[in-house]
């Protein structure tokens, strides 16, 4: 019975290496490349700019300089964006407006550099090592007079936004 061709092919299929390395229901196998790991399991809690994410102020405003020299960085407390689900705040990406807490004050700011997770990167979009913001005053104009670092050139697409156009106007270098 064991020698019959059908049972032999069944046996070889059962013990062939290709079967043992197919994707299991757990979504984990060995050896698994890093980019194959599902973002839905065993992930660090937050990817992207969310509540309590530290941000670097990259304009020349006095408030930003003080925050930087005191070592108490600004941190995001709200993202002004419509999320996919009610009561679930979305993550801020490049060009989004956020509310930050800085030196005991609340200031609105634009994200001009995002440290994006490796899985979420887009073709040709520069990713900076830090999350960079430009502070805004109550009227929505930039607090400083100059952006001190290079910002991604993709942000030029937001020139139609009247508030963001002012940020583009004070930035002189693009990545």
């Amino acid at each position: 019975m064991l020698g019959s061709p059908s049972s032999l092919s069944l046996l070889t299929r059962l013990f062939s290496p290709s079967i043992s390395s197919t994707v299991a229901a757990s979504g984990r196998w060995y050896p698994q490349p890093a980019y194959e790991l599902s973002k839905h399991r065993s992930r660090p809690p937050v990817m992207g700019i969310h509540r309590r994410t530290r941000c670097m102020v990259v304009d020349n405003s006095q408030l930003g300089k003080e925050a930087h020299s005191s070592g108490k960085l600004a941190y995001c407390i709200h993202v002004y964006k419509q999320g996919f689900r009610a009561k679930h705040m979305p993550h801020a990406t490049l060009g989004d407006k956020v509310l930050v807490a800085i030196r005991g004050e609340m200031k609105k700011a634009f994200v001009v550099g995002a440290n994006t997770h490796v899985h979420l990167r887009k073709h040709g979009v520069p990713v900076t090592d830090t999350n960079n913001i430009v502070l805004l005053n109550e009227e929505g104009n930039p607090l400083g007079t100059r952006v001190t670092t290079a910002i991604p050139a993709q942000l030029k697409t937001k020139v139609d936004n009247a508030q963001f156009a002012k940020v583009l106007a004070i930035s002189n270098k693009f990545l």
């Binding site: 490349p33 980019y35 550099g113 990167r121 887009k122 073709h123 990713v127 090592d129 670092t149 290079a150």
Partner: peptide
């Protein structure tokens, strides 16, 4: 350099004005 086939992507890194920048290209 990762992913096989048409999805192959590579990442370049440079430091510009003291700021680290990485760009992924397909």
């Amino acid at each position: 350099r990762e992913k096989p086939g048409l999805l192959h992507q590579f990442t370049l890194r440079n430091v510009i004005d003291g700021q680290g920048v990485e760009v992924m290209y397909e």
